[in-house]
């Protein structure tokens, strides 16, 4: 018993080291812009760069659009599969895993071939069209995470009976989804949303090949041209991701009706 506890503490410590050492290294390096002393110069440079603001603002808005699109596609699908087509579940699960197997470069070349300026639907001819395609691509990339998050949320509630209860009270399908199902899987949707956010903020391939001013390409450009700023940028990006995770915890803690179940 006692040796077991020592072992688990040891492995926990090793795991912490494994995860934290590179981060500590990055953080330490990002603070060494000034010779011989620690300073926040690299951070100051990053935050002062107007391109930083533009790209992160752009990626932020696109990530919101991606989340909305993802929820609109995934929530009704997962709901319907769970309710009416449970035998299709493995198929749908497999399909949602495809973006992990097929590299984003395939998607983006597909887009370029299908929607170029001389095609039947020249979406890439305009900035708005390209943004739309980018959001579609992001939604595809986040599909595995969004689907799993929402499906787990649906598993925690009795979808069938709640749906029937709402229907017997006069609710149509849209009302059932909007007023009964979605509010009860809000925590799951949020965790899917923050994962999506993290993916969109860091994504490089789609944005670079569609030539859109996103945060991912900016980070890569920065990495190729500056010494200390990329490390500072990485720390900032980590901070954003962690804040997202913290928010997931916070939301699930403060959603009133789930308090007692935890």
């Amino acid at each position: 018993m006692k040796s077991g506890r020592i072992f688990s503490a040891l492995f926990f410590g090793l795991a912490c080291l494994y995860f934290l050492l590179p981060l500590v290294g990055t953080l330490e390096f990002s603070l060494r812009a000034r010779r011989g002393e620690y300073s926040l110069d690299a951070y100051r440079n990053v935050l002062a760069d107007p391109q930083f603001h533009q790209t992160i603002g752009y990626s932020f808005i696109l990530s919101l659009a991606t989340i909305v699109l993802g929820v609109l596609i995934v929530a009704p699908t997962a709901f319907w599969v769970r309710l009416k087509l449970p035998r299709l579940r493995p198929v749908v699960e497999f399909l949602t895993l495809m973006p992990l197997v097929i590299p984003p470069i395939v998607i983006v070349f597909g887009y370029i071939r299908l929607y170029n300026t001389s095609s039947w639907l020249p979406l890439l001819g305009s900035a708005a069209g390209s943004d739309f395609l980018l959001v579609c691509g992001y939604a595809t990339l986040s599909l595995p995470y969004m689907y799993r998050a929402i499906d787990t949320g649906l598993r925690a509630i009795d979808v069938g009976t709640l749906t029937e209860a709402a229907q017997s009270l006069g609710a149509g399908w849209v009302t059932v989804l909007a007023r009964v199902i979605l509010p009860n899987i809000l925590t799951a949707i949020l965790s899917g949303a923050f994962l999506t956010f993290a993916i969109v903020i860091g994504e490089y391939v789609l944005a670079a090949l569609l030539n859109r001013p996103a945060f991912g390409p900016y980070m890569v450009w920065m990495g190729g041209n500056k010494a200390y700023e990329p490390a500072a940028l990485a720390v900032v990006a980590f901070g954003i991701t962690w804040a997202s995770m913290g928010l997931i915890q916070l939301f699930s803690r403060f959603s009133k009706h789930t308090q007692a179940r935890r």
């Binding site: 009976t161 017997s168 009270l169 009860n184």
Partner: peptide, 21 residues
């Protein structure tokens, strides 16, 4: 006629109250 247009009330074994309300 779909269930939501029948005006038939139902009580379930598992209560089926909406947990968020």
């Amino acid at each position: 006629l779909p269930a939501n247009r029948r005006r038939i009330g139902m009580v379930f074994q598992s209560y089926a109250l909406f947990p968020n309300l």
